[in-house]
């Protein structure tokens, strides 16, 4: 007598290989979730803006989304690896499983769902970042960033200051207008979670709001020739008072 689908499923989960592999899978998924919670943030520099904070959160959540995939793949791989055949002659033939319709469907649906979660989450983040940028635009401080082979400089039109250091007051929305004097560069103030290419004759916009005091490393993330590696400078997020003092020291005006 053929077993009912319910009995089939119960029998399936009574098999030794299924039990071991499932246990392995759950354990590895859990491990990935735990490690994923701190792994990236451990290495990434201190976030000085909400954009960088949301990138940190995104790295964690994407690791969690991938955890079941990681668990499944590693569990099956490990189980079959430890179940391997040793010797110089081929092993006995295994079961002639050509395909399993339900498994293929299940796999496709689950992986599509995980993908969908990632896509939707990414789109929401993208959308909220754009919304924030639009809301901030009217009262943003403008910083014109110019990439030159192999030096950055920054012009603050409202303050009439040009410098080689990126100084930003805390909690002030800032709009970067990025341009290149020559080849392509990529403006990367690391701790702000912002990156945008500098192109000749095309202004690229990027925006952020620094919300924590600290030092900023500004790097170039696009190979730009001889001294690409040295196309770096520093900057800082300072208090409004410190920023104003700095502007005055640079001969600018703090309207």
């Amino acid at each position: 007598m053929a077993p009912t689908p319910g009995e089939k499923l119960t029998n399936f989960f009574k098999r030794r290989d299924v039990i071991i592999a499932s246990a392995l899978g759950v354990a590895i998924t859990a491990l990935t979730v735990i490690i994923g919670g701190w792994w990236y943030t451990k290495w990434m520099p201190t976030a000085l803006s909400t954009d960088m904070k949301s990138i940190e959160r995104l790295m964690v959540i994407f690791t969690w989304i991938s955890a079941p995939v990681c668990g499944t793949v590693v569990a099956i791989t490990l189980y079959t690896f430890f179940n391997r055949h040793k010797g110089d002659t081929p092993p006995e033939d295994g079961p002639a499983i050509r395909t399993r319709g339900p498994i293929v469907i299940l796999w496709s649906v689950v992986s599509s769902m995980l993908c969908l979660v990632a896509v939707v989450y990414g789109l929401i983040e993208l959308n909220s970042a754009e919304g924030k940028a639009q809301a901030d635009a009217p009262h943003a401080m403008i910083v014109e960033v110019t990439g030159n082979q192999w030096v950055w400089n920054f012009h603050y039109p409202a303050q009439d200051v040009t410098t080689d250091k990126l100084m930003l007051p805390i909690n002030q929305p800032v709009e970067f207008r990025i341009i290149s004097a020559d080849v392509n560069h990529s403006f990367w103030p690391v701790q702000l979670g912002v990156k945008a290419d500098a192109n000749r004759y095309q202004v690229t916009l990027a925006d952020t709001t620094p919300n924590k005091l600290g030092t900023i490393d500004v790097k170039c993330a696009e190979l730009c020739g001889l001294y690409h590696a040295y196309m770096e400078t520093t900057g800082a997020v300072t208090t409004r008072a410190d920023f104003n003092n700095w502007v005055t020291a640079q001969g600018g005006h703090t309207a």
Partner: peptide
């Protein structure tokens, strides 16, 4: 380095 574009005849003199 020099920031004056003195590589004559090349893109942006660099």
């Amino acid at each position: 380095n020099c920031e004056y574009p003195c590589g004559d005849g090349t893109y942006q003199g660099f």
